[in-house]
Design a protein around this nucleic acid. Structure first.
Length: 286
DNA sequence: CCTGCCGGGTA
DNA sequence: TACCCGGCAGG
């Protein structure tokens, strides 16, 4: 961890290294952007039934990366640091913040939260005293998530607004781990690309909830689940099943006052065990 | 801030 | 299995 922190710290001291001005070739893509492609791609896999995004470059031949990438990189990089989110789909899109850290799929609802997540979890800083030097900005990106559309408007569902998060991938990035250094060799991607479609197991990348409590949320129409109930729900598509059925990823909070509220912290020994263990209250159920 | 509690620990 | 708690969502 110390090593990683050190490396990252040194990396962050010169954030401009990711700026296009210093980009040696037009295909050298900063790591965060690559991660974005990866996430976007995995998201697309999870919705196999209607896999026609507004972009489908990844479905084409992986060996033809689109040349004008540098220009796009410029934009995407800027979007990481600014906030010109063109709310095209204002009604149902919610801006979320996705951690780009390797092997971390955290998606949080506010930038401060994702920053704190990165700050404490990944950068290993003590959450209280250490001030933020803006390094966290580096490791998350804004994404737009379609929150409420249950069945309509899914034909043109876009997991992330291209203008927000960047251009579509010109080629499928490898699902295997990319060497986590600032500028990755380009041929690395091209070598990986061909094997990707065959071996990808997108469902493995998605968290699947099978809690009974959530099942009633589902519409029974199109869900032919083989397992008891398994809803592919990638973080990018939180709230959206593979066929667009909306499913709340979290139980709505009940109204009842629980032991903590009723007895207070000082009489903790009167709480039910679940409350003492910070589990769902068993005494005052909803 | 605070509350409720999930996920992931430890003894 | 009993217990604890970090961290998150939501208010």
């Amino acid at each position: 961890e110390v090593m990683a922190a050190t490396v990252l710290t040194s990396l962050s001291t010169s954030p401009l290294v990711l700026c296009p001005s210093s980009t040696p070739t037009e295909t050298a893509v900063p790591e965060p952007a690559n991660r974005v492609w990866k996430e976007v791609l995995s998201a697309s896999y999870s919705s196999s039934t209607s896999g026609n995004w507004s972009w489908d470059a990844s479905d084409q031949s992986p060996s033809t990366p689109s040349p004008p990438l540098s220009e796009d990189v410029t934009e995407s990089t800027h979007f990481m640091f600014e906030d010109p989110i063109p709310r095209k789909r204002k009604n149902s899109m919610k801006v979320m913040f996705k951690c780009l850290w390797k092997n971390c799929e955290k998606v949080l609802s506010t930038s401060s939260r994702i920053q704190r997540h990165i700050h404490t979890v990944h950068l290993g800083r003590n959450s209280d005293s250490d001030y933020s030097d803006g390094e966290e900005d580096f490791y998350y990106s804004e994404i737009e998530v379609n929150m409420d559309s249950l069945s309509e408007g899914l034909s043109n569902l876009t997991p992330t607004s291209p203008t927000t998060v960047g251009p579509p991938p010109a080629f499928p990035p490898p699902l295997t781990d990319v060497p986590y250094s600032e500028n990755i060799s380009v041929n690395g991607f091209q070598n990986h690309a061909p094997t990707l479609l065959s071996q990808s197991a997108p469902s493995a990348l998605c968290h699947i909830r099978t809690d009974h409590a959530y099942q009633h949320v589902l519409s029974s129409s199109q869900v032919q689940a083989t397992a008891p109930v398994s809803i592919p729900a990638c973080p990018e598509l939180a709230g959206i099943g593979s066929d667009g059925i909306s499913v709340s990823s979290r139980k709505p909070r009940g109204e009842a006052k629980k032991c903590r509220k009723v007895y207070g912290m000082e009489k903790r020994d009167m709480w039910c065990t679940a409350c003492r263990w910070k589990k769902a209250c068993q005494r005052f159920t909803d």
